[in-house]
């Protein structure tokens, strides 16, 4: 018999078959549009001053890859999870079967990671087409995206199991996801941020992901050394997973 967590994963796949078209647009096309608008057209003006040492396109492409992982992980871990408790009540139905709380979390997160992987792979191919991969380390950007995906999806699973109104997701996106995307080194180096903001960037999992991805595609060294970044992201993954399992259990016990 298949593991219960796998059954949860499969359940998600079945629904994905019906919505994949829209999700290709939002999880693949949007970052590519961002790459074109910022990298090519704004990049033209940045490169004239030559402040970065690399083409602006090369600079933001890996940043956008990491932020895509965050974006997909966040949107797949908010409304779908909330819906599982409130609208479709999928988790409540699972509770009536041998599926355990940990299986629900693992199975659903596995599906989110699959979505992250698909988007990241698509974006990596686009990056290759634009000639932004400058190192043999570049394929490592894919596992890094998964790490970023897990480090953000897991705590957001806990958040989604906690909140009582879906309006809180707008708040999560506007106060956490969007600021990370904008200030965690995707579009410009964090060195130019004021000290307090820079500290926040260091705390955010995205900055570590951006550093690792950029190191992989440009073949340069990352700010703190690769293993420090990886370790920090793994800490988010573990803490987030434990919190998510705890929160799921609490919500289902209500």
């Amino acid at each position: 018999m298949a593991h219960p967590a796998y059954a949860v994963f499969e359940h998600q796949l079945v629904s994905y078959r019906r919505v994949w078209r829209g999700s290709v647009l939002s999880s693949f096309l949007l970052p590519v549009l961002f790459l074109l608008a910022m990298g090519l057209s704004v990049g033209g003006y940045v490169d004239r001053t030559g402040g970065l040492g690399v083409r602006y396109l090369d600079f933001i492409a890996p940043g956008l890859l990491a932020s895509t992982a965050l974006q997909v992980a966040a949107s797949e871990s908010t409304w779908p999870v909330y819906s599982g408790f409130h609208w479709h009540r999928m988790y409540h139905s699972m509770r009536a079967t041998p599926v355990r709380v940990a299986d629900m979390v693992r199975g659903h997160i596995a599906y989110v990671l699959l979505r992250v992987a698909l988007s990241a792979l698509g974006f990596l191919i686009v990056m290759a087409l634009f000639g932004t991969l400058h190192s043999w380390w570049a394929p490592l950007a894919l596992p890094v995206s998964l790490l970023v995906g897990l480090a953000t999806a897991a705590p957001i699973f806990a958040f989604s199991a906690l909140v009582k109104t879906e309006g809180m997701f707008a708040v999560l996106f506007r106060f956490a996801v969007v600021p990370m995307t904008l200030f965690a080194g995707v579009f410009f180096p964090v060195d130019s941020l004021p000290l307090a903001a820079r500290a926040l960037a260091y705390v955010s999992p995205l900055w570590h992901g951006v550093e690792l991805t950029r190191a992989a595609t440009l073949g340069t060294a990352s700010a703190w050394g690769a293993w420090a970044h990886v370790g920090y992201l793994v800490a988010w993954c573990v803490a987030g997973y434990l919190l998510a399992t705890y929160r799921f259990g609490r919500r289902l016990a209500e």
Binding site: M38, R48, F183
Partner: peptide, 9 residues
């Protein structure tokens, strides 16, 4: 974008 990226332009 305005200030952060603007600093590069």
């Amino acid at each position: 974008i305005g200030l952060g990226v603007g600093a590069l332009i």
